[in-house]
Amino acid sequence: MKNKEKIGFMCAYTPLALIDAAGYAPYRILPSEACEDRAGHLLHDNLCPNIKKILDRALAGDVPDLAGVVFVNSCDAMRRLADAWQHVRKDDRIIWIDLPSSIDAMAHAYVQGQVEQMGRTLLSWSGSPMDPMAVEKSITSFNRICAHLSELAPAFASGAIPGGYAAMQALYNKASTRDFTTTLEEIEPMPGKTPAPKHDAVPVYLFGNVLPDPKAFDMFESCGAMIADADFCTGSRLFSPVTGGQKDVYSRLTSHLMTKPQCARSFDPALPGEIAKTTLSRARAVNAAGVIGHVIKFCDPYLERLPGIREHFKKNNMPLLILEGDCTLRSMGQQRTRIEAFIEMLM
């Protein structure tokens, strides 16, 4: 089980259970600071730093052997990454999930076709027979991972389990880069529902897009924050359980993609600006004293919606701090004074 071939992915909309069901380990290609900064040559310097750092890994040969890569048609940056990826790693086999921005019954049928095609392609690569029971089993495993991670997050955040939220983020990173069995072997014995000790730190809700560096969460905590909950695509958003009662596993996976906690690129046209309300209610649900949004530079889906979020938070008297970063602790470090001042203001 430890030597499963890997399927690379970069977007939290990737249906991981399908990768597991076909006998592969999902491997999230996370951005890394370790590689030389070269992607701007193929892309553009004004493109999402997450995407550039992922491409830097490909350019530096810092990606493990992959049986294939799944791309989601989620945003401009992801599309441009796919172009450059195929230029740099010409031999990689590619699967696309064409995911609409808005969701309705017609979109469901279209996306289900994409999910089924992804399943067929993975199975043709692995040589395994099509077996809905295998998909069902993988969904169950995935949901067990999600359930455990969701119990562990508050325990790490409150200090009930040592290591702080950085340790939680490290777990998210590990869970997104290895097979389900290994992840479950590590997290299931961990005590999730340990009573939380009293905490003097200020409860803060975090949201944004890509923030995989555990040290970033250390920094928030060292500034006096207690991370009451966090919504990032490199964290809980990737590990939301597959729910729904449909018998058909592909239909269920499709519903999951369409209803899971959303990145800003997905929205309901009937409720424009809803991201502001959703973010505020999630913050209120965990009694956050304030909210910190961490958005990577040049991410249009978030940057263009931030003014609406700011306005809504102001109207509702919820303190909000927006940080723009480039996925590195270096850029976060520069913001330390602002974070400290924000936390002090909440005390």
Binding site: N73, D98, S101, R265, P269, A270, E304, R305, P307
Partner: peptide, 28 residues
């Protein structure tokens, strides 16, 4: 053609309090 274009339409719908329809253009 772009993610930003969708976001600006969502913002305009919110600003004008008018109904928005999204045409999801498949990539292939």
């Amino acid at each position: 053609p772009c993610s930003g274009g969708v976001a600006v339409m969502e913002n305009l719908a919110r600003h004008f309090k008018k109904k928005l329809f999204v045409l999801n253009i498949p990539r292939q």
